[in-house]
Amino acid sequence: MTVTLYHNPACGTSRNVLAMIREAGIEPVVIEYIKNPPTRADLDVLASRLCVPVRELLRQRGTPYAELGLDDPALTDGQILDAIAAHPVLLNRPVVMTDTTARPCRPKEVLFEILPEAAPPA
């Protein structure tokens, strides 16, 4: 199984999720999406695996979210993905993607829903 992490090393939650994945014995493909923005095609793959609405990929704080009118509930998934492609800072990090599913991991414990093997022993 391939695990991909859309990562921002400046984000504590993103660093924690990366550490949790590695502690589970998995070496993920790490995409620093600010330095290497995903293409629209990459975002389409990500969206196709999401187990939550595409809107959950949007980060509001510290981004041009309001200025771009992204608070409009009538926006389509395609319009949201176009905005993220144009402004990668809008991606709500960290996002973990496997071969079958994807989800923003905020809070970090959401990771356990995608990768149960990353959960601490009971």
Rank of each mutant, 00 (worst) to 15 (best):
L58E: 10
V54M: 01
P9E: 06
D82S: 13
A41Q: 11
V54E: 06
D82G: 03
A66K: 12
I80A: 05
L58F: 15
N8Y: 06
Y6Q: 10
D42V: 00
I84Q: 11
H87R: 15
I31S: 01
C11K: 06
P120S: 15
L68R: 09
R59I: 07
E67S: 06
V96R: 00
L68Y: 12
P94T: 07
V3M: 03
A86R: 09
T76I: 05
K35Y: 11
C51W: 08
A102P: 01
S14Y: 09
I31E: 03
E67Y: 09
L5M: 06
I34E: 13
I80F: 01
V95L: 04
T98V: 14
R106F: 04
E23Y: 01
E32Y: 00
P120V: 09
T4L: 11
L18I: 02
I80M: 04
P116M: 12
S14M: 13
T76S: 15
M1T: 01
E56W: 04
C11W: 08
P28V: 06
A47S: 14
L46S: 00
P116F: 04
S48Q: 11
F112L: 14
L70H: 04
L75K: 13
A85Y: 04
P64V: 10
D82P: 12
K108R: 06
A47N: 05
R22T: 02
Y33N: 05
V95N: 04
I84E: 11
E109V: 05
T2P: 03
T39F: 02
T2G: 00
P37I: 02
P28G: 08
R22F: 02
P121E: 12
A10C: 09
I80N: 05
P104F: 03
I34G: 10
V29T: 14
E67G: 07
V54H: 06
Q79D: 09
L18G: 00
V89E: 15
A85V: 08
P116H: 05
D44W: 03
P121L: 05
Q79K: 03
L46W: 00
L57A: 05
A74K: 07
P120E: 15
R22N: 10
L43I: 02
V52D: 14
P121V: 08
H87G: 07
E109Y: 13
A83T: 05
I31Q: 05
T76K: 08
G62Y: 03
V29D: 13
P121N: 10
N8T: 07
G25I: 10
P104S: 04
T13H: 08
Y65P: 04
T63A: 09
V17I: 07
A19S: 14
L81R: 01
V17Y: 08
T76Q: 09
L5K: 06
G62L: 00
E109S: 00
N92L: 10
T63N: 07
L70F: 05
A74G: 09
A41R: 12
M1C: 02
V89C: 13
T13I: 14
P53G: 14
P28S: 15
R93F: 02
